[in-house]
Design a protein around this nucleic acid. Structure first.
Length: 152
DNA sequence: GCCAACGTTGGC
DNA sequence: GCCAACGTTGGC
């Protein structure tokens, strides 16, 4: 089972929004970057995903969700009213994908970006690489374990 | 609010 | 195909 990390602004969708509806799949939509989209396409039901809070007061990994539905065309791309509308997308040739995810757990304590940067073994994780803006990325089993492993 | 780094667009 | 201009991301 593959593992992943996704970034989100908690004002948009936070781990608490998942926690409020523990049995309900929430669409992960609005991804408008090709590299991130390609990773979305590789997600399978059952995959676990770190939720990372960005552009906020407490930056870091806040919890875990899991994929309940693999990639399907993101409806927002067809909606002229949506900020995620893409006029170059058609139902025959959709450019963008969404997946559904649902709550697994909120971490007892946020794992801060600062801590992630200082952890050995995470140098290859795009999240901590200078200038990286990738919002959906794979996490290896080793990285996953390192991230959860120690909390000091 | 600032700004470095990045991705995309479009003229040539 | 190049690359300048522009818009966005995201930490600080």
């Amino acid at each position: 089972m593959a593992k992943w990390l996704v970034k989100t602004e908690p004002s948009e969708c936070s781990i608490d929004d998942f926690a409020k509806q523990p049995g309900t799949p929430i669409p992960w939509d609005g991804v408008r970057n090709y590299q991130a989209r390609n990773f979305l396409r590789q997600m399978a039901a059952g995959d676990q995903v770190f939720i990372y809070h960005s552009s906020c007061k407490h930056i870091g990994i806040a919890g875990i969700v899991r994929v309940t539905q693999s990639a399907y065309p993101d409806p927002a791309q067809f909606d002229p009213e949506s900020p995620y509308h893409d006029p170059k997308s058609t139902p025959e040739q959709p450019r963008w994908q969404a997946v559904d995810m649902q709550f697994v757990e909120k971490l007892p304590a946020l794992i801060s970006l600062d801590r992630l940067k200082n952890r050995e073994g995470l140098d290859q994780l795009p999240l901590v690489r200078k200038g990286s803006r990738l919002s959906v990325m794979p996490v290896s089993a080793d990285e996953w374990r390192l991230i959860l492993g120690h909390t000091t």
